[in-house]
Design a protein around this nucleic acid. Structure first.
Lengths: 148, 148
DNA sequence: CTAAAACCTCATGTATACTTGAGGTCAATA
DNA sequence: TATTGACCTCAAGTATACATGAGGTTTTAG
C-alpha cells in the first residue's frame, strides 16, 4: 500500500465516483490503469486529477466522447497545468455557447410571456409550424439542441 | 380532410417532428388523439400549439416527464395564453437556474485557467477529492447536475 | 494461515428519448 | 375499382452513462 499507487477503491473514495464508473471510464478509454500480478487495478496519483477533469467537464454538459477526445492528447502522461488551461478554455467556449443559447431561449420566453402570443403567426417561439405550408423542412427556428 | 382535423402526417409536417415521435408522445401521455373508424389518428389544430410547447421546453432541457406534469393540467382543453404564460414563467425559472449553474462553473473554470492550479489543494474545482482523507462523502462541491 | 473485504470479468438491467422494421390495414386518387 | 401512399401496432434497436449481480480470485488484517 505504501508504494504510492491507488487501488480502484481508493480512487473511488477520493474522487467521489463509484468503482463501477471507474471501470466504465477505463472501458471507454478515458482512464488507464496498471495491474498487479493478481490483475487488480493500480493507479498513479495523477488519476485523481484526470477524474476531476472528467467530472468537471461532465458537469458542464460535455459528453464522455468529447471529453475523451480532449484527454487523448495525454493518455499516460500527466495532465500538466498548461494542458489543463487549454482544455478548460475550450470548454469555457462550449459553456459559453450553451449559456448563450439558453439565454436566448429565455429571452424569447420572456417576450412571449409578455404578449401571450403563442397563437399568433409571428411569435418567435412558434414560427416553425404554420410557416411551412406544405413541404420541406425549411429553416427551423427551434432546432434540436445538438448534444454532440 | 376538410373537416379541419389533422392526420398524424399533417402534424408531423407542420410541427417538424417525426411521426414516430408523435406516437411516442401519445404513448407517454403528452398528447392525445381521436381516432377515425379505421383507427387512424386525428388531431384538433390545437395540437400544434401543444407540440410547439413540448419542443420549446425540451430545448430548454426540461425532461418529458416534467413537461408532461405541466401539460397534464389541461389534457384535452386547449392551452390558453394564460396557461402558457404560467408554464413559460415556471420554465423561465428553471432556465435561469440552469444558466446560473453553468455560469458559475464557467467562472470557476476562468479562475482556474488563470492560476493553472488544478494540482493545488484549494482549487475550487478540485476540492472534492483530497479533501476527504478517508471516509464519508462530505460536502460535495462538484455535485451531480440533477437532471430531474 | 485463514477469513473477510476488496477485486475481477462479463452479462444484464435502467432511464431517456426516440427510430426502425415487420406485417398488415385504411383512404385518397387515377 | 385498384393501387399506392399513409397509417396502425408491437417488438426491437440505438445512444449515453452508468449500476447491479453472479461467480470466482486476490489482498489484507488479525
Amino acid at each position: 500500500m505504501m508504494d504510492n499507487t491507488l487501488s480502484v477503491g481508493d480512487v473511488a473514495r477520493r474522487s467521489g465516483v463509484a468503482v463501477s464508473t471507474l471501470h466504465y471510464y477505463e472501458e471507454k478509454g478515458l482512464i488507464q490503469s496498471l495491474r498487479t500480478q493478481g490483475n487488480q487495478r493500480r493507479y498513479h496519483r495523477s488519476i485523481l486529477r484526470r477524474v476531476a477533469i472528467i467530472r468537471i467537464a461532465k458537469q458542464a454538459g460535455i459528453s464522455l466522447r468529447i471529453i475523451k477526445s480532449h484527454l487523448e492528447k495525454f493518455p499516460t502522461r500527466e495532465v500538466s497545468p498548461s494542458d489543463w488551461q487549454q482544455m478548460s478554455s475550450e470548454w469555457r467556449a462550449m459553456l459559453n455557447e450553451r449559456i448563450l443559447s439558453l439565454t436566448q431561449l429565455r429571452d424569447k420566453l420572456d417576450s412571449c410571456i409578455g404578449c401571450g402570443c403563442l397563437s399568433l403567426r409571428d411569435c418567435p417561439l412558434r414560427n416553425p409550424e404554420d410557416k411551412l405550408g406544405e413541404e420541406g423542412p425549411g429553416a427551423r427556428l427551434l432546432e434540436e439542441e445538438k448534444q454532440n
